[in-house]
Computed example of a mutant assay.
Amino acid sequence: MAISAVARETVFALRRQIAKIEGTLPERLQASAPATLDADAGAGPGGDLTIVRRGLAAALPDAFLPIGVERLDAALGGGLPKAALTEIHGLETRDAGAVAGFALSLVSLMLNQAQGLPILWIGTSEIFHEAGFPYARGLHATFGIEPGQLLFSEAPRLIDALWVAEEAARMTALAAVILEIRGNPQRLDLTATRRLHARAQGAGRPVVLMRQAAGPEPTAAPVRLIAASAPAVPRETVAGPLAGSIGRPAFTISIGKSRTALPGQFTLEWNPDERGFEERRDKERRAENPVPVVSLSGGRKDPAAAAGEILAFPAVGSPISPTAGNQPPPGQRATHLGPRRAS
């Protein structure tokens, strides 16, 4: 009996460890509901019962950071996991500003729940020279982030940036850790992302991996979002849209990977005043504010002739018939009948 109990506890410990590696968080169940347990359930530390499911795992409601858009949060299964590695991709170099802006929007949401803790932004010298640093005055005006709340660490090499990220990810004195990397370097493999994901789970803090001009590849992150810029719409006023103005920052967000495996694409606008996201429905906006794509021509009395009229032309190589309708006016000669220039 003792050997059976030890073997059973060993199996449960291995299952919990596999679930942590795969990113499926175990859910603690109440002891008063033993009937809900299945073959994968076991006794956790302190007598609490835990259940580990393959694939999707139920989690506590406060385990996610809601983005604030109902459809996007539902597609992600509640939002972004707080204690996990999350990827934000930019497919092209020109998307670097959109990726950074979307990440700063998430930072603003994280700081609302961090109780004054700072956020560390880590990057290599190459990425900071290519994409630049965030503007301090813009951080406060657009995202409500004080300059002292956002710390930067510039590493000369990728291996140094990964080391700083792993050490920072285990610190509970930080609200979150952001690692910005360009492309698909070989050193950032599945093992490296597993280490970052494990550090995030151990500290209970989010780690955001920003990848500029990168393609999708296998990682340990349970969520991958692809960010790109979206065209801004004119500012809304009491009298309607203000012509020639530039509205709120807009992002096109695509779900590349999630716990629910539900695809989707969303256009989000960041509200600098409310410090939150709002979904923009482009089709509904075009229906409410119809604008002609091409303006009507002016300076003529009659509209253009309707399509479908047939015009007869002489066949190639055939002489022009000497009819009155085919004769050119006096003093003019058909261009194709004139001699070509030697030069």
Rank of each mutant, 00 (worst) to 15 (best):
S295W: 06
Q327V: 09
G325V: 15
G308D: 10
T323K: 03
P328C: 07
I310E: 12
P328D: 08
R333M: 06
A312F: 12
E309Q: 14
I310S: 09
G298E: 15
P329G: 07
G317C: 01
V316Q: 05
G317E: 01
A324T: 13
A312R: 10
A315K: 09
V293L: 15
R300M: 05
G299S: 05
T323M: 02
A324Q: 12
A324Y: 02
A324G: 06
G317R: 00
G298N: 08
A305H: 12
Q332W: 08
P328M: 05
S295Y: 03
P329H: 06
P328N: 07
P303Q: 01
R300E: 02
F313H: 11
I320E: 11
A306K: 14
F313A: 14
L311M: 14
L311N: 13
A334F: 08
E309G: 09
L296N: 07
S318M: 11
V294Q: 11
G298P: 00
A334M: 04
K301D: 13
S321P: 05
P329V: 08
F313P: 00
N326C: 10
P319G: 04
G331D: 06
P330Q: 05
P328I: 06
T323V: 07
G308F: 09
T323Q: 05
T323N: 09
A305C: 07
P330I: 03
G331Y: 01
G317I: 00
P330N: 03
P303L: 04
P303D: 06
V294G: 01
A305K: 10
H336F: 04
I320P: 01
